[in-house]
Nucleic acid binder design. Structure first.
Lengths: 350, 350
DNA sequence: CGCCCGCTCGGGAGCGCTCTCAACGACCGG
DNA sequence: CCGGTCGTTGAGAGCGCTCCCGAGCGGGCG
């Protein structure tokens, strides 16, 4: 392992001495250089360069109370998270946005219940400026434990009392589901079934609601609860076929579920899309394109969701910290939740 | 967005006042309580509890020069990373181990070349105690830029000069490949082809070497270069079939590539495994189990790799920082690289 | 009985930085 | 020509913590 170099890193003091100015001046230059005359700026810059000076973040945080770091909390009791590229893409979007604002990403993965306390303590400890939280489940205790830390949620939190002012970024799950089902109906399908996702997640609930919006008088037997997994999709599809052999379309809560459905349909000798049309949700590439037949699905821009979450949080932080805002300047609005549109991607399965 | 509470967080001083002791004593209790008599410990603990005191990490780091944080660097010029659960699982292993040692995980994703400098600067800035680096590509400039930060690599770094003492954790790619090919040979296959991974990654090179170890005199035409992707696997399989129509087995550098191969084989009317046996690499679940036919593949324990990387790094840090080690106590060995075994998982495809 | 040692505890310095405030010129208007 | 003002710089305090050192106090041993 590469060893830690023992030579001490240069301090502000050292740079000041070398440049022949005071610590305060060096500090000013390092932090943008406002109010320092050009020749001095130049001299300080050179000294910084020569000494390879890098500010000590700990010392800085100690006085500024800013950390230039944001926690990303992924409460993840199940392994499903890692079965699709959802979080990876989201992280990527978040990372991009944070990097652009010189903020670091502190990743907090939880393992079971006890861990929630740990995460809450960490957040309360003021190590980070804010938090981005993926609250997957309706009964997740975490949101209740987070106090005093600006937070943006990924996906609408499922609180009974109407998500009391929480800021979140979500896809238009309900609208997307509606579009998917309308598409199936537009194809002339009348017996449109729905395989739900795990109904302790708002995304699954919203997609189910979207389905119901269009299929107002649908046979309740055409809806079967599942869990967003491939195996779950298979099981659900078998149950549906047994119960309603005359169904002519399936709207699955996500692509993985749709994949399970496709497999069972083939197994039972139904042709897709001739006998049964299938629509998924997510547009999980390259899987959807490579499926047999290529899957018609509802696309959501996952990376953009991540980017937006970060942007919302950072904007909120700026606002709070903007004591220095000039009078007369518009104070930025408190950020509010955003619901991103979805688009139906038509391929061969419906 | 939940607003930042403005009431100031209690300091050591406040706890000391409440408990009627000095700052130093509170500090001792907070850091383990050695050398403080029981009744005092109790009183301090209660004061901490009542005030909800949480140590200010910035202040602490300022003097201790420890951060209890480790950077995870993912140099990721391609999107392949997010197509399989590789990094997610690795991260999970890392996270588990770090959590157990009260360390935080700072995630650094890079976007293109300029970002390497940013990452290097951050690491040099002494924000973290060490780094875990996934150095995917042979020509990756990052390892050269990392100075003075204890580092453990994920996967053998591909330096020409023999990886000069770098500590890494890797799977036994070569051995795993050998086992896979031997299995095919054991099945009576004589024309065993290999679809390589992206050969600018050591894992791909090592798997190719493993293949060659067994197929010493193989027709060079049976090896075709690819890139670890599904589409790449398809292309490679087509090329192979055109070139060597008589092949009776394929060892693909990973499961995704194998999936592409399976698809093309079906398309061309070859039965798997009767006409052509196929083995993959990774055991990427649930995909391998659900493939048609279920894929025989070489499993590597990705999560364990992550955990091990973190453990190695932390052990190295302890060693360096263990100035307080009692004389006579064995000084821990400098950690050295670990190569994890792989196992062949036999399913239907070979 | 006295001395010395070891265990507890508190005092205080200082980690590297930011930020306020005062000092100092230069410059402008009256 | 002088007072006021603004722009530029430096001095110094202090963020919350750790850790060194020395004071105080028993207790064991000679």
């Amino acid at each position: 392992m590469t060893e830690q170099s023992t030579e001490p890193r240069p301090t502000l003091e050292a740079v000041a001495a070398r440049a022949g100015v005071s610590r305060a001046t060096v500090s000013r230059v390092v932090n943008g250089g406002d109010g320092v005359r050009e020749p001095l700026v130049e001299r300080v810059r050179r000294a910084v360069e020569e000494l390879g000076y890098v500010p000590n973040q700990a010392a800085r945080s100690l006085v500024t109370r800013r950390h230039d770091a944001v926690a990303v909390v992924i409460a993840e009791p199940e392994t499903r998270v890692f079965a699709d590229p959802f979080f990876a893409l989201q992280l990527r979007g978040i990372s991009k946005e944070l990097t652009a604002h010189d903020s670091q990403l502190v990743l907090l993965l939880t393992e079971g219940r006890d861990d929630h306390a740990r995460v809450a303590r960490y957040l309360a400890g003021g190590h980070v400026d804010g938090a981005l939280v993926f609250s997957l489940h309706l009964d997740d205790p975490l949101p209740g434990l987070i106090r005093g830390v600006p937070t943006v949620y990924g996906g609408r939190p499922g609180w009974r009392d109407g998500s009391r002012g929480a800021v979140y970024v979500d896809s238009d799950n309900r609208g997307g589901a509606r579009e998917a089902v309308r598409h199936l109906v537009g194809l002339g399908r009348r017996r449109v079934a729905h395989i739900t996702g795990a109904l302790d997640q708002t995304s699954a609930v919203d997609r189910l609601d979207g389905y119901r919006d269009v299929m107002v008088d649908a046979d309740p037997g055409l809806t079967v609860e599942s869990d967003f997994t491939l195996g779950g999709g298979e099981r659900a599809m078998r149950e549906l076929l047994d119960r309603c052999p005359d169904l002519d379309a399936v709207f699955a809560a996500n692509d993985l579920t749709a994949a399970g459905a496709l497999r069972v349909l083939r197994e039972r000798g139904r042709r897709v899309p001739q006998d049964v049309a299938v629509v998924g949700f997510d547009d999980m590439l390259p899987f959807t394109e490579q499926a047999d037949p290529p899957l018609t699905t509802v696309r959501q821009d996952i990376e953009e969701m991540g980017r937006l979450m970060a942007r919302l949080l950072l904007r909120g932080l700026e606002r709070t910290g903007a004591a220095s805002a000039r009078a007369g300047e518009d104070v930025a609005e408190a950020p509010s939740s955003v619901v991103l549109p979805t688009t139906l991607v038509r391929r061969a399965s419906a």
